[in-house]
Computed example of a mutant assay.
Amino acid sequence: MSDGRIRMLAWGSAALAVCLVAGLLLGTTRGVSDGDELRASDSTRLSDLVRAAQVKVDELGVLRDDLAARVAALQNQAATTDDDVAGVLSTADALAEPAGLTARRGPGVTVTLTDAPRGPDGRYPTDAAPDDLVVHQQDVQSVLNALWAGGAEAIAMQDQRIVATSAPRCIGNTLLLHGRTYSPPYVITALGDRARLEAALAAEPGINVYKQYAARFGLGYTQQASDDLTVPAYTGSATVR
């Protein structure tokens, strides 16, 4: 047998062996994965992590509320027999309202910010960058700063009270506030003199820039005054670290 024929037989045998091994690997992979994608089972998506963290935060919130109720009950019980405890609780009660620990109701202004929607054709404006189409942290902060400057007596964002230690942060197109995540629209409610609040909003440079983007790219900005608004009490930790 010539050397050329031997080489051809050797290459043919090698190719057959490779195909058999590849087929065996594919069959084993399908059997192990049960028809699913193996990489998908090993890689957790960011949205799944956010949802899992949110569930954990909710569970811890329920535990916190239960422990806070127990502490309050014990404090009130001790106050009936200890004048020192009663005095401390009286001082704490006097500071509860300015600290945002009580719900408030009265006249004020509500501001709503929303991301830009798609056009009738299902597309965004061709000259818009992704950052032009979403509400940013500086937009939220401009509204909050204007409301405080306008003499707001109490402010809530979404369903939470804004206090001195609050730090709303935008992550992508979601908002992180007190450990909870929110999607647009972002609703900010402020109690106070309506005329002063509206004047402060009109004078805020950051809001005026946002309105220019709203007019060009379709971002949402609505502002509404009312004689009867409510903001909830702050229920988070009051410890400053």
Rank of each mutant, 00 (worst) to 15 (best):
M1S: 15
S2C: 09
S2F: 07
I6T: 15
M8W: 11
L9F: 15
L9K: 08
S13H: 07
A17Y: 09
A17I: 15
G23D: 12
R30D: 15
G31L: 13
G31V: 02
D34S: 15
G35T: 08
A40F: 11
R45M: 07
L46S: 03
L49A: 03
A53M: 02
V55H: 08
L60H: 12
G61A: 11
D65E: 14
A68G: 07
A72V: 09
A72Y: 10
A73S: 13
T80K: 04
D83N: 05
D84H: 07
D84G: 07
V88I: 06
L89G: 01
A92G: 00
E97I: 13
G100E: 01
G100Q: 02
A103P: 10
R105S: 15
G106C: 08
P107K: 08
V111E: 04
L113S: 04
L113P: 03
G119W: 09
G119S: 13
G122R: 11
Y124Q: 09
P125Y: 12
A128F: 14
A129V: 14
A129C: 03
D131N: 13
L133D: 10
V134M: 08
V134S: 05
V135S: 04
H136W: 04
Q137A: 13
V140C: 12
Q141M: 11
L144N: 07
N145R: 01
L147Q: 02
L147P: 01
G150T: 00
E153T: 06
I155K: 02
Q158N: 14
Q160Y: 07
R161S: 09
V163T: 15
S166R: 08
G172P: 09
L175G: 03
L177Q: 10
A199P: 00
A203G: 04
P205S: 05
P205C: 01
I207A: 01
N208K: 15
Y221V: 00
T222R: 14
Q223I: 00
A225E: 00
D227P: 02
D228N: 14
V231I: 13
P232I: 02
P232M: 04
S237K: 15
A238R: 15
T239G: 07
V240G: 05
